[in-house]
Design a protein around this nucleic acid. Structure first.
Lengths: 197, 197
DNA sequence: CTCATAACTTGACACCATGTCAATTGACGC
DNA sequence: GCGTCAATTGACATGGTGTCAAGTTATGAG
Protein backbone atom coordinates (compact mmCIF):
# COMPACT_ATOMS: atom_id res chain seq x y z
CA UNK A 1 0.00 0.00 0.00
CA UNK A 2 2.48 2.64 1.11
CA UNK A 3 6.25 2.68 0.96
CA UNK A 4 8.73 4.37 3.26
CA UNK A 5 10.48 6.11 0.42
CA UNK A 6 8.15 8.75 -0.93
CA UNK A 7 10.24 9.76 -3.90
CA UNK A 8 9.81 6.65 -6.04
CA UNK A 9 6.14 6.45 -5.25
CA UNK A 10 5.74 10.06 -6.18
CA UNK A 11 7.71 9.66 -9.36
CA UNK A 12 5.32 6.88 -10.30
CA UNK A 13 2.26 8.98 -9.53
CA UNK A 14 3.65 11.89 -11.45
CA UNK A 15 4.43 9.66 -14.42
CA UNK A 16 0.98 8.16 -14.30
CA UNK A 17 -0.66 11.55 -14.13
CA UNK A 18 1.40 13.00 -16.96
CA UNK A 19 0.68 10.09 -19.26
CA UNK A 20 -3.02 10.02 -18.47
CA UNK A 21 -3.32 13.73 -19.08
CA UNK A 22 -1.34 13.60 -22.30
CA UNK A 23 -3.29 10.70 -23.75
CA UNK A 24 -6.69 11.65 -22.35
CA UNK A 25 -6.72 8.44 -20.39
CA UNK A 26 -6.44 6.12 -23.34
CA UNK A 27 -3.91 3.39 -23.91
CA UNK A 28 -1.72 4.00 -20.90
CA UNK A 29 -0.12 0.70 -19.90
CA UNK A 30 1.76 -0.24 -16.76
CA UNK A 31 4.86 -0.53 -18.93
CA UNK A 32 4.53 3.07 -20.09
CA UNK A 33 4.14 4.41 -16.59
CA UNK A 34 7.12 2.41 -15.34
CA UNK A 35 9.29 3.55 -18.20
CA UNK A 36 8.47 7.16 -17.59
CA UNK A 37 9.06 6.78 -13.86
CA UNK A 38 12.46 5.29 -14.64
CA UNK A 39 11.83 1.88 -13.14
CA UNK A 40 10.79 -1.54 -14.37
CA UNK A 41 7.22 -2.60 -14.81
CA UNK A 42 7.58 -5.16 -12.04
CA UNK A 43 8.81 -2.55 -9.58
CA UNK A 44 5.49 -0.79 -9.99
CA UNK A 45 3.90 -3.65 -8.14
CA UNK A 46 6.17 -3.01 -5.16
CA UNK A 47 4.20 0.20 -4.68
CA UNK A 48 0.74 -0.53 -6.05
CA UNK A 49 -0.92 -3.92 -5.98
CA UNK A 50 -2.95 -3.43 -9.16
CA UNK A 51 -3.47 -1.05 -11.98
CA UNK A 52 -6.75 0.06 -10.44
CA UNK A 53 -5.02 0.89 -7.19
CA UNK A 54 -2.42 2.96 -9.00
CA UNK A 55 -5.10 4.82 -10.91
CA UNK A 56 -7.00 5.55 -7.74
CA UNK A 57 -3.85 6.73 -5.99
CA UNK A 58 -3.23 8.96 -8.99
CA UNK A 59 -6.58 10.66 -8.49
CA UNK A 60 -5.76 11.34 -4.86
CA UNK A 61 -2.40 12.69 -5.90
CA UNK A 62 -4.13 14.97 -8.36
CA UNK A 63 -6.58 16.13 -5.72
CA UNK A 64 -3.73 17.05 -3.43
CA UNK A 65 -1.94 18.89 -6.25
CA UNK A 66 -4.95 20.90 -7.35
CA UNK A 67 -6.73 21.26 -4.06
CA UNK A 68 -10.08 19.97 -5.21
CA UNK A 69 -11.83 20.01 -1.90
CA UNK A 70 -10.90 23.60 -1.25
CA UNK A 71 -12.22 24.73 -4.59
CA UNK A 72 -15.47 22.84 -4.42
CA UNK A 73 -16.03 24.00 -0.88
CA UNK A 74 -15.64 27.57 -2.02
CA UNK A 75 -19.15 27.41 -3.43
CA UNK A 76 -20.40 27.04 0.15
CA UNK A 77 -19.47 30.60 0.97
CA UNK A 78 -21.91 31.91 -1.61
CA UNK A 79 -24.83 33.77 -0.14
CA UNK A 80 -28.02 33.04 -2.05
CA UNK A 81 -29.04 29.69 -3.48
CA UNK A 82 -28.75 31.04 -6.98
CA UNK A 83 -25.22 32.25 -6.41
CA UNK A 84 -24.36 28.98 -4.84
CA UNK A 85 -25.68 27.06 -7.84
CA UNK A 86 -23.64 29.25 -10.17
CA UNK A 87 -20.53 28.95 -8.04
CA UNK A 88 -20.79 25.19 -7.86
CA UNK A 89 -21.28 24.73 -11.58
CA UNK A 90 -18.40 27.08 -12.25
CA UNK A 91 -16.06 25.30 -9.84
CA UNK A 92 -16.96 21.81 -11.01
CA UNK A 93 -17.12 22.77 -14.64
CA UNK A 94 -13.63 24.20 -14.55
CA UNK A 95 -12.38 21.21 -12.66
CA UNK A 96 -13.55 18.58 -15.15
CA UNK A 97 -10.96 19.28 -17.86
CA UNK A 98 -8.22 18.91 -15.29
CA UNK A 99 -9.34 15.48 -14.21
CA UNK A 100 -10.57 14.34 -17.60
CA UNK A 101 -7.63 12.07 -18.45
CA UNK A 102 -7.65 10.14 -15.25
CA UNK A 103 -11.44 10.16 -15.12
CA UNK A 104 -11.62 8.52 -18.48
CA UNK A 105 -9.14 5.82 -17.53
CA UNK A 106 -11.10 5.07 -14.37
CA UNK A 107 -14.38 5.12 -16.24
CA UNK A 108 -13.02 2.63 -18.74
CA UNK A 109 -12.14 0.23 -15.92
CA UNK A 110 -15.44 0.76 -14.15
CA UNK A 111 -17.20 -2.09 -15.89
CA UNK A 112 -14.54 -4.71 -15.31
CA UNK A 113 -12.91 -3.72 -12.05
CA UNK A 114 -14.89 -3.46 -8.85
CA UNK A 115 -12.26 -1.35 -7.08
CA UNK A 116 -12.15 1.16 -9.91
CA UNK A 117 -15.94 1.30 -9.96
CA UNK A 118 -16.07 1.94 -6.26
CA UNK A 119 -13.43 4.66 -6.44
CA UNK A 120 -15.20 6.44 -9.25
CA UNK A 121 -18.61 6.11 -7.64
CA UNK A 122 -17.27 7.56 -4.43
CA UNK A 123 -16.02 10.59 -6.31
CA UNK A 124 -19.38 10.99 -7.98
CA UNK A 125 -21.12 10.74 -4.64
CA UNK A 126 -18.91 13.53 -3.35
CA UNK A 127 -19.76 15.65 -6.36
CA UNK A 128 -23.41 14.86 -5.83
CA UNK A 129 -23.24 16.39 -2.39
CA UNK A 130 -22.35 19.68 -3.99
CA UNK A 131 -25.40 19.41 -6.24
CA UNK A 132 -27.56 18.53 -3.29
CA UNK A 133 -26.28 21.47 -1.26
CA UNK A 134 -26.90 23.92 -4.08
CA UNK A 135 -30.43 22.64 -4.61
CA UNK A 136 -31.11 22.71 -0.87
CA UNK A 137 -29.93 26.32 -0.69
CA UNK A 138 -32.23 27.19 -3.55
CA UNK A 139 -35.09 25.45 -1.79
CA UNK A 140 -34.41 27.30 1.46
CA UNK A 141 -34.62 30.59 -0.41
CA UNK A 142 -37.95 29.53 -1.84
CA UNK A 143 -36.46 29.72 -5.31
CA UNK A 144 -36.58 26.07 -6.28
CA UNK A 145 -38.95 25.40 -9.14
CA UNK A 146 -42.05 23.53 -7.96
CA UNK A 147 -41.62 21.24 -10.96
CA UNK A 148 -39.12 19.17 -9.01
CA UNK A 149 -38.66 17.76 -5.57
CA UNK A 150 -35.22 18.56 -4.16
CA UNK A 151 -34.22 14.91 -4.68
CA UNK A 152 -35.22 14.88 -8.31
CA UNK A 153 -33.64 18.23 -8.94
CA UNK A 154 -30.43 16.90 -7.45
CA UNK A 155 -30.58 13.83 -9.70
CA UNK A 156 -31.04 16.05 -12.73
CA UNK A 157 -28.31 18.52 -11.87
CA UNK A 158 -25.95 15.69 -11.04
CA UNK A 159 -26.63 14.07 -14.39
CA UNK A 160 -26.38 17.34 -16.27
CA UNK A 161 -22.92 17.95 -14.81
CA UNK A 162 -21.54 14.49 -15.55
CA UNK A 163 -18.10 14.11 -17.06
CA UNK A 164 -19.70 12.29 -19.99
CA UNK A 165 -21.84 15.31 -20.77
CA UNK A 166 -18.85 17.60 -20.56
CA UNK A 167 -17.07 15.23 -22.93
CA UNK A 168 -19.93 15.19 -25.37
CA UNK A 169 -20.37 18.94 -25.48
CA UNK A 170 -16.72 19.91 -25.64
CA UNK A 171 -15.16 17.03 -27.54
CA UNK A 172 -18.00 15.81 -29.76
CA UNK A 173 -19.80 19.13 -30.27
CA UNK A 174 -16.64 21.24 -30.19
CA UNK A 175 -17.80 23.69 -27.59
CA UNK A 176 -15.10 25.83 -26.04
CA UNK A 177 -14.78 25.40 -22.30
CA UNK A 178 -16.10 28.87 -21.61
CA UNK A 179 -19.31 28.22 -23.49
CA UNK A 180 -19.73 24.95 -21.65
CA UNK A 181 -19.60 26.64 -18.27
CA UNK A 182 -21.83 29.54 -19.23
CA UNK A 183 -24.41 27.36 -20.93
CA UNK A 184 -24.62 24.93 -18.05
CA UNK A 185 -25.14 27.75 -15.61
CA UNK A 186 -27.90 29.11 -17.79
CA UNK A 187 -29.53 25.69 -18.23
CA UNK A 188 -29.51 25.07 -14.50
CA UNK A 189 -31.02 28.45 -13.75
CA UNK A 190 -33.71 27.91 -16.30
CA UNK A 191 -34.51 24.45 -14.98
CA UNK A 192 -34.38 24.98 -11.26
CA UNK A 193 -34.78 28.65 -10.34
CA UNK A 194 -38.03 30.58 -10.03
CA UNK A 195 -37.96 34.20 -8.90
CA UNK A 196 -39.02 34.69 -5.31
CA UNK A 197 -41.32 32.18 -3.63
CA UNK B 1 -18.80 -10.73 -44.43
CA UNK B 2 -21.99 -12.55 -45.40
CA UNK B 3 -22.67 -16.24 -45.73
CA UNK B 4 -25.08 -18.06 -48.00
CA UNK B 5 -26.65 -19.94 -45.14
CA UNK B 6 -28.64 -17.49 -43.07
CA UNK B 7 -29.55 -19.84 -40.26
CA UNK B 8 -26.15 -20.12 -38.58
CA UNK B 9 -25.48 -16.44 -38.98
CA UNK B 10 -28.84 -15.68 -37.49
CA UNK B 11 -28.32 -18.11 -34.66
CA UNK B 12 -25.11 -16.26 -33.86
CA UNK B 13 -26.78 -12.88 -33.96
CA UNK B 14 -29.61 -14.09 -31.79
CA UNK B 15 -27.15 -15.58 -29.30
CA UNK B 16 -25.16 -12.37 -29.26
CA UNK B 17 -28.25 -10.28 -28.72
CA UNK B 18 -29.61 -12.49 -25.97
CA UNK B 19 -26.36 -12.50 -24.07
CA UNK B 20 -25.82 -8.79 -24.43
CA UNK B 21 -29.33 -8.06 -23.23
CA UNK B 22 -29.08 -10.46 -20.33
CA UNK B 23 -25.75 -9.16 -19.10
CA UNK B 24 -26.33 -5.51 -19.94
CA UNK B 25 -23.44 -5.66 -22.33
CA UNK B 26 -20.84 -6.65 -19.81
CA UNK B 27 -18.46 -9.58 -19.95
CA UNK B 28 -19.79 -11.22 -23.08
CA UNK B 29 -16.94 -13.09 -24.77
CA UNK B 30 -16.71 -14.63 -28.19
CA UNK B 31 -16.62 -18.03 -26.49
CA UNK B 32 -19.93 -17.36 -24.76
CA UNK B 33 -21.65 -16.31 -27.93
CA UNK B 34 -20.32 -19.33 -29.80
CA UNK B 35 -21.42 -21.70 -27.07
CA UNK B 36 -24.91 -20.32 -27.03
CA UNK B 37 -25.11 -20.43 -30.81
CA UNK B 38 -24.09 -24.08 -30.65
CA UNK B 39 -20.84 -23.73 -32.57
CA UNK B 40 -17.16 -23.37 -31.77
CA UNK B 41 -15.49 -20.08 -31.11
CA UNK B 42 -13.43 -20.41 -34.26
CA UNK B 43 -16.51 -20.91 -36.40
CA UNK B 44 -17.65 -17.46 -35.34
CA UNK B 45 -14.85 -16.05 -37.42
CA UNK B 46 -16.23 -17.78 -40.50
CA UNK B 47 -19.13 -15.33 -40.26
CA UNK B 48 -17.70 -12.24 -38.64
CA UNK B 49 -14.13 -11.05 -39.01
CA UNK B 50 -13.86 -9.43 -35.60
CA UNK B 51 -15.76 -8.97 -32.39
CA UNK B 52 -16.52 -5.40 -33.36
CA UNK B 53 -18.05 -6.53 -36.63
CA UNK B 54 -20.24 -9.05 -34.85
CA UNK B 55 -21.38 -6.42 -32.38
CA UNK B 56 -22.22 -4.02 -35.16
CA UNK B 57 -24.09 -6.71 -37.06
CA UNK B 58 -25.99 -7.41 -33.86
CA UNK B 59 -27.17 -3.83 -33.70
CA UNK B 60 -28.45 -4.03 -37.26
CA UNK B 61 -30.17 -7.28 -36.44
CA UNK B 62 -31.80 -5.60 -33.47
CA UNK B 63 -32.89 -2.66 -35.61
CA UNK B 64 -34.55 -5.02 -38.04
CA UNK B 65 -36.28 -6.89 -35.22
CA UNK B 66 -37.60 -3.82 -33.48
CA UNK B 67 -38.12 -1.57 -36.43
CA UNK B 68 -36.15 1.38 -35.11
CA UNK B 69 -36.33 3.56 -38.14
CA UNK B 70 -40.08 3.25 -38.36
CA UNK B 71 -40.56 4.24 -34.77
CA UNK B 72 -38.21 7.17 -34.82
CA UNK B 73 -39.71 8.38 -38.06
CA UNK B 74 -43.13 8.36 -36.44
CA UNK B 75 -42.23 11.58 -34.68
CA UNK B 76 -42.11 13.24 -38.10
CA UNK B 77 -45.84 12.96 -38.49
CA UNK B 78 -46.42 15.17 -35.46
CA UNK B 79 -47.97 18.51 -36.28
CA UNK B 80 -46.49 21.26 -34.14
CA UNK B 81 -42.88 21.59 -33.11
CA UNK B 82 -43.79 20.99 -29.50
CA UNK B 83 -45.61 17.79 -30.33
CA UNK B 84 -42.74 16.71 -32.44
CA UNK B 85 -40.28 17.29 -29.63
CA UNK B 86 -42.46 15.27 -27.26
CA UNK B 87 -42.93 12.50 -29.79
CA UNK B 88 -39.23 12.24 -30.48
CA UNK B 89 -38.24 12.11 -26.83
CA UNK B 90 -40.91 9.54 -26.19
CA UNK B 91 -39.85 7.34 -29.09
CA UNK B 92 -36.14 7.56 -28.36
CA UNK B 93 -36.58 7.34 -24.61
CA UNK B 94 -38.56 4.14 -24.91
CA UNK B 95 -36.06 2.75 -27.37
CA UNK B 96 -33.00 3.17 -25.16
CA UNK B 97 -33.74 0.35 -22.71
CA UNK B 98 -34.13 -2.02 -25.62
CA UNK B 99 -30.73 -1.25 -27.05
CA UNK B 100 -28.99 -0.68 -23.75
CA UNK B 101 -27.12 -3.98 -23.58
CA UNK B 102 -25.63 -3.79 -27.02
CA UNK B 103 -25.07 -0.06 -26.69
CA UNK B 104 -23.01 -0.58 -23.60
CA UNK B 105 -20.88 -3.25 -25.22
CA UNK B 106 -20.25 -1.00 -28.20
CA UNK B 107 -19.54 1.96 -25.98
CA UNK B 108 -16.98 -0.08 -24.05
CA UNK B 109 -15.13 -0.87 -27.27
CA UNK B 110 -15.35 2.69 -28.51
CA UNK B 111 -12.05 3.76 -27.03
CA UNK B 112 -9.99 0.86 -28.31
CA UNK B 113 -11.64 -0.14 -31.56
CA UNK B 114 -11.99 2.29 -34.42
CA UNK B 115 -14.70 0.26 -36.16
CA UNK B 116 -16.82 0.11 -33.03
CA UNK B 117 -16.33 3.83 -32.50
CA UNK B 118 -17.42 4.56 -36.03
CA UNK B 119 -20.48 2.35 -35.77
CA UNK B 120 -21.58 3.93 -32.53
CA UNK B 121 -20.91 7.44 -33.74
CA UNK B 122 -22.98 6.80 -36.85
CA UNK B 123 -25.90 5.74 -34.71
CA UNK B 124 -25.51 8.84 -32.60
CA UNK B 125 -25.42 11.00 -35.71
CA UNK B 126 -28.67 9.41 -36.83
CA UNK B 127 -30.22 10.12 -33.47
CA UNK B 128 -28.93 13.66 -33.65
CA UNK B 129 -30.89 14.20 -36.83
CA UNK B 130 -34.05 13.54 -34.88
CA UNK B 131 -33.02 16.19 -32.35
CA UNK B 132 -32.18 18.59 -35.10
CA UNK B 133 -35.52 18.05 -36.82
CA UNK B 134 -37.47 18.59 -33.63
CA UNK B 135 -35.58 21.80 -32.85
CA UNK B 136 -36.02 23.00 -36.42
CA UNK B 137 -39.75 22.38 -36.23
CA UNK B 138 -39.89 24.36 -33.01
CA UNK B 139 -37.96 27.15 -34.64
CA UNK B 140 -40.27 27.22 -37.66
CA UNK B 141 -43.22 27.59 -35.31
CA UNK B 142 -41.49 30.52 -33.65
CA UNK B 143 -41.47 28.59 -30.39
CA UNK B 144 -37.75 28.05 -29.96
CA UNK B 145 -36.37 29.86 -26.96
CA UNK B 146 -34.19 32.83 -28.00
CA UNK B 147 -31.65 31.65 -25.44
CA UNK B 148 -30.25 29.19 -27.96
CA UNK B 149 -29.38 29.03 -31.59
CA UNK B 150 -30.88 25.97 -33.30
CA UNK B 151 -27.41 24.42 -33.45
CA UNK B 152 -26.75 24.87 -29.78
CA UNK B 153 -30.21 23.70 -28.85
CA UNK B 154 -29.60 20.58 -30.90
CA UNK B 155 -26.30 19.97 -29.13
CA UNK B 156 -28.00 20.29 -25.77
CA UNK B 157 -30.98 18.10 -26.60
CA UNK B 158 -28.69 15.52 -28.11
CA UNK B 159 -26.58 15.46 -24.96
CA UNK B 160 -29.59 15.40 -22.67
CA UNK B 161 -30.91 12.32 -24.45
CA UNK B 162 -27.66 10.37 -24.38
CA UNK B 163 -27.64 6.73 -23.39
CA UNK B 164 -25.24 7.62 -20.57
CA UNK B 165 -27.76 10.03 -19.11
CA UNK B 166 -30.50 7.45 -19.35
CA UNK B 167 -28.19 5.04 -17.58
CA UNK B 168 -27.36 7.48 -14.85
CA UNK B 169 -30.96 8.42 -14.14
CA UNK B 170 -32.47 4.96 -14.30
CA UNK B 171 -29.67 2.75 -13.04
CA UNK B 172 -27.74 5.04 -10.69
CA UNK B 173 -30.64 7.20 -9.49
CA UNK B 174 -33.21 4.41 -9.64
CA UNK B 175 -35.77 6.27 -11.69
CA UNK B 176 -38.49 4.15 -13.25
CA UNK B 177 -38.57 4.30 -17.02
CA UNK B 178 -41.85 6.19 -17.03
CA UNK B 179 -40.47 8.96 -14.89
CA UNK B 180 -37.42 9.19 -17.12
CA UNK B 181 -39.53 9.79 -20.21
CA UNK B 182 -41.90 12.24 -18.57
CA UNK B 183 -39.13 14.21 -16.90
CA UNK B 184 -37.10 14.49 -20.04
CA UNK B 185 -40.07 15.74 -21.97
CA UNK B 186 -40.68 18.34 -19.30
CA UNK B 187 -37.02 19.38 -19.16
CA UNK B 188 -36.88 19.81 -22.91
CA UNK B 189 -40.05 21.88 -22.98
CA UNK B 190 -38.78 24.08 -20.22
CA UNK B 191 -35.42 24.56 -21.91
CA UNK B 192 -36.42 25.04 -25.51
CA UNK B 193 -40.05 26.08 -25.82
CA UNK B 194 -41.46 29.56 -25.46
CA UNK B 195 -45.16 30.16 -26.01
CA UNK B 196 -45.98 31.81 -29.31
CA UNK B 197 -43.36 33.91 -31.11
C1' DC C 1 34.99 -3.11 7.46
C1' DT C 2 31.36 -6.12 7.09
C1' DC C 3 26.85 -7.62 7.17
C1' DA C 4 21.84 -7.14 6.82
C1' DT C 5 18.14 -5.04 4.77
C1' DA C 6 15.21 -2.77 1.57
C1' DA C 7 14.58 -1.21 -3.09
C1' DC C 8 15.11 -2.50 -7.50
C1' DT C 9 16.42 -5.47 -11.61
C1' DT C 10 16.26 -9.51 -14.60
C1' DG C 11 14.07 -13.10 -16.75
C1' DA C 12 10.62 -16.37 -16.78
C1' DC C 13 5.96 -17.62 -16.51
C1' DA C 14 0.62 -17.95 -15.77
C1' DC C 15 -3.74 -16.14 -17.28
C1' DC C 16 -7.14 -14.52 -20.37
C1' DA C 17 -9.26 -12.77 -24.47
C1' DT C 18 -8.87 -12.06 -29.43
C1' DG C 19 -7.59 -13.59 -33.70
C1' DT C 20 -5.18 -17.11 -37.01
C1' DC C 21 -4.00 -21.37 -39.29
C1' DA C 22 -3.80 -26.18 -40.95
C1' DA C 23 -5.65 -30.51 -41.04
C1' DT C 24 -9.76 -33.15 -40.58
C1' DT C 25 -14.77 -34.52 -40.46
C1' DG C 26 -19.42 -34.80 -42.16
C1' DA C 27 -23.35 -33.75 -44.98
C1' DC C 28 -25.37 -32.73 -49.30
C1' DG C 29 -25.95 -32.42 -54.18
C1' DC C 30 -24.76 -34.41 -58.47
C1' DG D 1 -18.29 -42.10 -55.35
C1' DC D 2 -16.71 -37.01 -55.58
C1' DG D 3 -16.27 -32.41 -54.71
C1' DT D 4 -17.64 -28.69 -51.89
C1' DC D 5 -18.76 -26.07 -48.01
C1' DA D 6 -19.57 -25.57 -43.10
C1' DA D 7 -17.86 -26.68 -39.14
C1' DT D 8 -14.50 -29.03 -35.83
C1' DT D 9 -10.08 -29.86 -33.54
C1' DG D 10 -5.94 -28.49 -31.76
C1' DA D 11 -2.17 -25.50 -31.86
C1' DC D 12 -0.27 -21.03 -31.77
C1' DA D 13 0.63 -15.63 -31.85
C1' DT D 14 -0.24 -11.34 -29.56
C1' DG D 15 -0.76 -8.09 -25.90
C1' DG D 16 -1.72 -6.74 -21.42
C1' DT D 17 -1.89 -7.76 -16.28
C1' DG D 18 -0.06 -9.85 -12.46
C1' DT D 19 3.43 -13.23 -10.02
C1' DC D 20 7.67 -15.28 -8.66
C1' DA D 21 12.52 -16.42 -7.71
C1' DA D 22 17.13 -15.10 -7.89
C1' DG D 23 20.47 -11.62 -8.24
C1' DT D 24 22.24 -6.64 -7.61
C1' DT D 25 23.22 -2.34 -5.22
C1' DA D 26 23.21 1.30 -1.87
C1' DT D 27 22.92 2.49 2.78
C1' DG D 28 23.26 2.39 7.53
C1' DA D 29 24.31 -0.24 11.92
C1' DG D 30 27.30 -2.86 14.44
Amino acid sequence: MSSKNPTTRERILKASLNLLEASQGQGVRMTDIAKRAGITRQALYLHFATRAELLIATTHYLDALKGTDARLLASRTARSGTERLDAFIEAWGRYIPEIYGIAKALLAMRDTDAAAAQAWDQRMRDMREGCEAAIAALDRDGNLSPDHTPDQATDILWTLLSVRNWEQLTVACGWPQERYVETLKSLARRLFVVESG
